[in-house]
């Protein structure tokens, strides 16, 4: 049994985009705040803090997770992936990110991190999604700038590109 006292800070350790991280948090600290303000991983954004807008979505142990509805303490020992872990290197964008740029699938970019995380997670498990499936997936996110259709287009393009590159790899 681990009981963390309310008024004290406790160590929280997990793996963030493949690297071990550690800091301290009170039991009430939200994962979104821990990522952003303790660890400096500010790519994950906070839009509503009641689980509706989807901006703060990250992946915890392979599960899509609203980081505003999750305590930092809950993910102790887990594997986390955030938007900072998507690009293959600092000066290159991944296939999905490139598709977003090509399709003008973002404007202000504030909601984008959460949407990218949902898509990255989904496409890795469902490589050939239909438009309806993408729309269903992304109904858990709110974007106020784009009107959504460029996002859907980017997602479908990225899926096609990822599938064909996989085929090429397996053919080779």
């Amino acid at each position: 049994m681990t009981r963390l006292k309310a008024d004290q800070r406790h160590a929280v350790r997990f793996s963030l985009n493949g690297k071990p991280v550690e800091d301290e948090a009170e039991p009430r600290m939200l994962l979104s705040d821990f990522l952003r303000h303790q660890l400096g991983a500010t790519g994950t954004h906070v839009g509503c803090e009641h689980g509706v807008c989807g901006a703060c979505t990250v992946v915890v142990d392979g599960m899509l997770t609203r980081s505003c509805l999750t305590l930092a303490a809950q993910v102790d020992g887990c594997e986390l992936k955030t938007v900072e872990g998507l690009a293959p290197s600092a000066d290159r964008l991944g296939v999905l990110q490139q598709a977003f740029r090509r399709n003008h699938a973002l404007q202000c970019g504030f909601c984008t991190a959460g949407i990218l995380m949902s898509l990255d997670h989904y496409l890795s498990r469902h490589p050939t999604p239909s438009e309806a499936e993408i729309r269903d997936l992304l109904s858990g996110h709110i974007c106020r700038c784009t009107g959504y259709t460029p996002i859907i287009q980017a997602a479908l393009e990225a899926a096609a590109e990822l599938t064909s590159s996989k085929k090429e790899t397996s053919n080779a």
Binding site: M1, R3, R28, D33, L71, A73
Partner: peptide
């Protein structure tokens, strides 16, 4: 909009 204090028991 931050939670009030509480103990956390895993």
């Amino acid at each position: 909009m931050k939670p009030p204090t509480f103990d956390y028991l895993r």
